[in-house]
Write a protein that binds this DNA or RNA. Structure first.
Lengths: 336, 336
DNA sequence: GGTCGAATCTGAAACGTTTCAGATCGGATG
DNA sequence: CATCCGATCTGAAACGTTTCAGATTCGACC
């Protein structure tokens, strides 16, 4: 039924070893053999069986990626950057969504372990160090994305979320806002707590007295943002914050939709809004969104490079790369 | 080094065949054996080698997905729907981006062929029928996404793009617009030409005299939309269209940004805008965007189901599923 | 006790590749 | 002409699983 390397060898009049060499190290084979083998491959429509190759060679040509939320354009950009780097080396990216669900997360990690991927890029939700340690014992390195590996047990590529949170809150304070609400959740997500911590430190160190209130959400989605906005509206006007720092742009975009009363948009006059990630849609929002930018494609590309370095040289020490976030001011905080 | 099924068998005091049976059909094994094998697996930290399993069984547990544009939230939703359906059956989704590049597209198809994926979901860019036919000959079915398979050679799941184009144009005409511009490209993409054809038929059959002009773009991205908007602005006011139908929402969102003069938004008063896909960000745009909605997650889920049906039963005739698009009117065309 | 069938288990073959120790070939060298 | 060496090729072993024909066990039944 299926064409194997043996059929190619027979047609080309060489041994299977030679065919394999043509495929893997053509330099070690005479030009005439290369040509005969290639024409046989062409003629038979031979396609290498990756399972057999991997079984014998013990090396796969795929890299796993476990994302927190596949629908978040931020991760799409990170994946894009990683994919670009991977395809440049002939590798493919296997892609799974944990959707902020610990069970799905371990499911994908286990799957990648069975597939013996070359390495694993992961934006973790739960505590995955035990599982990742096990993968490493089996020769599969991991790089954490968007989360600093405090103990240095794994390499990581992230943005300084605390600094980002501080940037956001300082910006709001500098625009004269004093009653700030942090909207985000769940607080099982490290980035969320870090961004909050940064905001808190900015408020505490502020020259002006200011307050920081926490408005929790169940997830970092547009829908949750809309709901949070509605909840704020349900309050007396006097009790509403005059600024909101949303844990990411999806929430912030939802808030923009939620913070509308009788067709009147409260942003930015009554309530200023800052998001996080600066996804491409932030600039195109109802009120263009001020946001803390992360260099998403760069994060993905850097992580992939580090991962492949570690895969090639297992002894290599781990590396923590932290990019600096950058505030992009737009209309949602009254910027031009 | 690595723990194999043989080590498990030895520790559990059974044969390798029995271990395999515990893994694959526990019903055929006595309860006591199941228990001993499982405890041995636990104790040794055994993980099944997927390459060997696939080599022998000839079946993989992954499905390939080739998307036109991984950064487009529409495809993220389609993938989400497909992934949901796949994980319900214990399959993972291998994911590649063609980025509207024929070379990358064939690269991924070839890769999936080598990996012997269970099946292939593809939103095609170039002409891929030859390659897909070859995959099928090797037992790998494909389902086309977002493109009707005219000759019925492959199953497909799509939305009636011509009808969608007609909906968009009719809506603009009903709002009193008469000089319509279609913004989109490249015209190598079937959806683009279909949407244009639908718009054209609506204009030609209109009770009122109206014109349809084509403003070509290089790709379906936000940036191209901004550029197209700028080009329209560069014209004399009299030469500008009074409505734009953009081939997708990314373009439309870009247009909204581009169609601003001296801080004044021309949409919808001078120019109405309709997009296509109704991505989650359309409603959150600077001017909430009227759009032709596609049931994206449903498309992905349906395609996956059909694909897996065909994988299980290769003789099964192909099926063409066409969903009806739906117009969602918002402020960008002067709707409430 | 002998026979039978179902339930359960065994162990070797096979999947298609890569790898590697050794064979072969064809000059170049003395 | 004998020897040697590098370039090239060969063919079998090995990777870890699934599969399957046959072996074994165990009750039930006569």
């Amino acid at each position: 039924m299926s064409v194997s390397i043996r059929d190619v060898a027979t047609l080309a009049g060489v041994s299977v070893g030679t065919v394999s060499n043509v495929l893997n190290r053509p330099d070690a084979v005479s030009a005439s053999s290369v040509e005969r083998v290639n024409s046989a491959i062409e003629q038979l429509g031979y396609v290498r069986n990756d399972a057999a190759r991997q079984l014998r060679a013990g090396v796969s040509t795929t890299v796993g990626f476990v994302a927190l939320d596949g629908r978040n354009p931020f991760f799409a950009d990170v994946v894009g950057g990683a994919e670009h780097e991977a395809t440049a080396r002939g590798l493919a990216v296997l892609h799974g969504n944990s959707d902020e669900d610990a069970a799905r997360e371990t499911l994908y990690i286990d799957l990648f372990e069975q597939q013996m991927v070359r390495g694993l890029l992961i934006a973790p939700f739960g505590d995955v160090t035990a599982r990742l340690t096990r993968l490493r014992a089996r020769g599969i390195p991991s790089v954490l994305i968007d989360r600093f590996s405090g103990d240095g047990r794994f390499s990581s590529v992230s943005v300084d979320s605390v600094a980002g949170g501080r940037l956001a809150a300082e910006h709001l304070l500098s625009r004269g806002r004093r009653r700030i609400a942090f909207v985000g959740g769940s607080f099982d997500i490290r980035q969320v707590t870090d961004r909050l911590a940064g905001a808190r430190s900015a408020v505490e160190n502020s020259a002006h007295p200011a307050t920081l209130e926490v408005v929790p959400t169940h997830a970092l989605t547009v829908d949750e943002g809309v709901a949070a906005g509605r909840r704020l509206l349900a309050r007396d006007r006097a009790d509403r914050p005059d600024a909101v720092f949303a844990a990411n742009d999806l929430l912030a975009l939802g808030l923009l939709q939620g913070l509308v009363v009788d067709g009147r948009m409260l942003v930015p006059d009554e309530i200023a809004v800052v998001g996080f990630d600066d996804i491409p849609f932030a600039a195109a929002a109802a009120v263009p969104l001020t946001s803390v930018r992360q260099p998403s494609a760069l994060i993905g590309g850097t992580a992939m490079r580090i991962l492949l370095d570690e895969a090639d040289d297992p002894g290599r020490p781990t590396r923590q790369t932290v990019f600096a976030p950058e505030l992009v001011a737009r209309a949602s905080t009254g910027a031009p």
